[in-house]
């Protein structure tokens, strides 16, 4: 369980997070929705400690994340970055197997490579892509390599920042199914950012909407359609007119 209490983060005068309170239950899939530029990516980075919150606490199973041992904390996480963030000096399989090849419990190369190829297959990439460099792949393929890297070491908690943007509908479906499988079969806690409402319905146990630096609405996905919050309704139906301004 991850608990965020009154988390604030500003970049200069730009107050991005202004008191976020949110609980992500263990073994569930939480989807974060919200307009572009509202701070969804910043929120994930705050939990991982890549961005330091100005105020507030973030706790993992009750212990403050700033007080836990960094290495053991990070070893429990996997993260897909919005831009992929693949290491461009390494081959695709070395990217996927990075965590398996480094650190205290490093595997021998052939074994790590086999695992990498298996993970690539799970995100719909054929083994012949394994020896290419990231720059030789299309945008959507890079995204899927990033996804394979996030799940490669089978972490307990995985963050997906827009896993299906840039993918065709079929591949998006494959990825949605994969995320759902990881959560239900392996008991992973997942936190996914997406703009795609069909992904939300396919992936989510719970949904949280971030707007104006606050969690505007949160609840089980089944209750989302019936919720009366005008911001949420405007967002899920993609209407141009409503309380959320269209120029931000």
């Amino acid at each position: 369980m991850i608990t965020l209490t009154d988390v604030h983060k500003a970049f200069g005068p730009n107050g991005v997070l202004q008191g976020v309170n949110l609980t992500i239950p263990k073994g569930q899939s939480m989807v974060i929705i919200g307009g572009s530029g509202t701070g969804k990516s910043v929120l994930l980075k705050c939990i991982l400690g890549l961005v330091t919150p100005d105020q507030g606490t973030i706790a993992l199973e009750g212990t403050d994340v700033t007080k836990t041992e960094r290495d053991t904390f990070l070893a429990r996480f996997g993260m897909l970055f919005q831009g992929g963030a693949l290491f461009d000096s390494m081959r695709v399989w070395e990217n996927v197997a990075f965590r398996l090849l480094h650190g205290a419990k490093a595997l021998p190369k052939p074994q790590a490579r086999d695992i990498a190829i298996e993970k690539l297959r799970r995100v719909g990439l054929t083994p012949d892509k394994a020896d290419l460099f990231p720059a030789e792949l299309s945008g959507g393929m890079q995204k899927r390599v990033g996804l394979a890297r996030a799940i490669a070491a089978e972490p307990e908690i995985i963050f997906f920042d827009e896993p299906t943007t840039g993918l065709d509908p079929i591949m998006a479906g494959v990825i949605n199914t994969l995320i759902r499988e990881i959560v239900t079969e392996m008991g992973v806690t997942a936190m996914t950012i997406t703009h795609d409402m069909s992904s939300v319905r396919a992936i989510a146990d719970r949904v949280a909407m971030l707007h104006d630096g606050l969690i505007r609405w949160t609840g089980p996905v089944a209750e989302m359609d019936a919720a009366t919050d005008p911001y949420l309704q405007q967002f899920i139906h993609g209407r141009a007119d409503g309380p959320i301004e269209s120029v931000r």
């Binding site: 991982l48 070893a75 996997g78 993260m79 970055f81 963030a85 693949l86 290491f87």
Partner: peptide
């Protein structure tokens, strides 16, 4: 390009 951040998340 966030590769440094990615390194951190990969311990």
């Amino acid at each position: 390009t966030e590769q440094v951040d990615a390194l951190v998340t990969l311990s």
